[in-house]
Amino acid sequence: MGRFLHTAFLIVAAGLLGWINSGRAEEKPVGGKPGEPSFATPQQAYEAFAKAHLDHDWVAAWRCFTPKLQDSVAFECVFQLGLQSAETRKSLGLDDPKNQEKYFRTESEVSPTPEPKTDEERRQAVAAAVRDKPGLYGLLQRVDSESESPTDWKTPLRQVAVKKERAQGVVTRYIFSIEGKPGEPAVKKLSPYDSPVYFQLTKTGWLIDLPTSEESQAYADSLRK
């Protein structure tokens, strides 16, 4: 294993989701304690999240996530950035040793733990290898902003439904496709679709969260209708 835990990029990108690390780091979240600041409504949480993206304030965006979602997003950042081309990784500065140490923990900062056996434990292990989670999230947003279908953070949250400590809304997103009949010029197209956003009421207020298994199943069922 190399000196830096950025090795996770190569391993995860190759699809080898086994044990990538010999230990787990002591968590010292960048950007304040999870759950800060608090939001009185799901709408407030999403509006703060969207504003943080418009302002490129990745610490503020990160604070809108529940701790469980933070682990999942950190894992996704490692996975997605690891899939980028060498040219893109270089443009993001990921080949610079100083940036590697900035974003990822060194081996001396981890403590031995058992090998993870579940997907959730693997996500937690990958997330623990990331030193600057908001910063890494910001790098992924740079990739998104330069894509064919960048996220429009000005679209509002709508159809918000609250049920006790859970809430759900939708925002309009766009998917990029190329269409055209044989022999005709290809046409680039952006097609809108409703993307669900889930929320959890915590001790400090509403935060954006992962969907529960029931919510995921309900969304999958709605796509089949």
Rank of each mutant, 00 (worst) to 15 (best):
M1R: 13
G2M: 12
F4S: 15
F9I: 08
L10E: 10
V12A: 11
A13E: 01
A13Y: 01
A13P: 00
A14P: 04
A14V: 00
L16N: 10
L17Y: 08
G18W: 10
G18L: 11
S22I: 05
G23D: 11
R24F: 13
E27Q: 13
E27M: 12
V30M: 11
G31S: 08
G31I: 02
G35S: 06
G35F: 14
E36W: 10
F39L: 05
A40V: 01
A40S: 15
T41P: 07
P42S: 11
P42H: 08
Q43L: 14
Q44A: 15
A45S: 15
A45H: 11
Y46P: 09
Y46R: 07
A48C: 13
A48L: 06
F49T: 14
A52R: 09
H53Y: 12
D55T: 01
H56P: 08
W58H: 08
A61W: 09
W62C: 02
F65A: 03
P67A: 09
P67Y: 01
K68E: 15
Q70V: 10
S72A: 15
S72Q: 06
V73K: 07
A74V: 11
A74W: 12
E76S: 14
L81D: 07
G82W: 07
L83M: 15
S85E: 15
E87C: 04
T88C: 02
R89L: 00
K90E: 15
D95T: 08
D95Y: 01
D96R: 00
P97G: 06
Q100E: 07
E101R: 11
K102C: 04
K102Y: 04
F104W: 09
R105P: 05
S108A: 14
E115N: 13
D119H: 13
D119V: 12
E120V: 14
E121I: 10
R122D: 10
A125R: 13
A127M: 06
R131N: 14
D132M: 05
G135C: 09
G135I: 01
L136G: 03
Y137G: 09
L140T: 04
Q141E: 08
S145C: 03
E148V: 00
P150H: 03
P150V: 01
W153F: 02
K154M: 03
L157F: 11
L157M: 10
Q159K: 15
A161N: 13
V162G: 04
V162P: 07
V162Q: 11
K164A: 11
R166G: 00
A167P: 05
Q168C: 15
G169Y: 11
V171L: 03
F176A: 09
F176W: 02
F176L: 00
E179T: 11
G180M: 05
G180L: 07
K181E: 15
P182W: 03
G183K: 07
E184F: 06
P185Y: 01
P185E: 05
K188L: 02
K189I: 03
L190V: 00
L190H: 03
D194A: 12
P196L: 08
P196D: 00
V197Y: 04
F199G: 06
L201G: 03
L201Y: 11
L201M: 09
T202D: 05
T202V: 07
K203T: 14
D209Y: 06
L210V: 13
P211Y: 06
P211I: 12
T212F: 10
T212N: 06
Q217W: 09
A218C: 10
A218L: 12
R224L: 12
R224S: 07
K225M: 11
